[in-house]
């Protein structure tokens, strides 16, 4: 009886630990993929570490996994890779003096083109238009009718 009780206690104590390990391992995998998606494979052409089948990409993923297990945060791991490979490794360019233009550009364009479109539409709405083309003369009218009848 005592033994059973001891087992139960042991289970009650160990079970969550096992579960925690499994949950932790799943979390590591999820974080690994999340980090790998944002880093590029250095030998491939525009592929992320998450999808690349190259050997080096798999090694780098393993490195990410080990660092996560060792308790490093995703931010620490990312900065480790940036230190080694430069901004080149980041699929999403950083918001620094060199990368900023990429992020400002779409907004600047939206403002500029939107502004130009509104200005042009306003000006055109007010501006007097050149006289429209003259109505068809009787001769032309006859031609049109003749051609329509042919059809």
């Amino acid at each position: 009886m005592r033994r059973v009780a001891a087992l139960v206690v042991l289970w009650a104590w160990l079970g969550p630990c096992f579960a925690a390990t499994i949950v932790h391992e799943n979390a590591v995998r999820r974080q690994e993929i999340a980090i790998a998606k944002k880093l590029r494979c250095t030998v491939c052409q525009a592929e992320s570490l998450a999808v690349s089948q190259a050997g080096i990409a798999q090694d780098m993923r393993k490195l990410i996994r080990e660092k996560l297990r060792a308790g490093e945060t995703p931010a620490q791991i990312r900065s480790y890779f940036v230190k080694r490979y430069g901004d080149y490794i980041l699929l999403k360019p950083p918001f620094d003096p060199l990368g900023a233009i990429l992020w400002i550009w779409p907004f600047a364009l939206a403002a500029a083109f939107g502004g130009v479109a509104i200005a042009v539409m306003r000006r055109r709405a007010r501006a007097p238009m050149p006289p429209s083309a003259p109505e068809l003369g009787p001769e032309d009218q006859a031609r049109v009718e003749a051609l329509t009848r042919q059809e």
Binding site: R40, Y88, L91, P93, L102
Partner: peptide, 22 residues
Amino acid sequence: GTLYPLFLQAATGARITVGPPY
């Protein structure tokens, strides 16, 4: 996004990547 990395590398030698997340 497509041409900026080319220009940047030609102008300053700095290499950046503009990838799917961007």
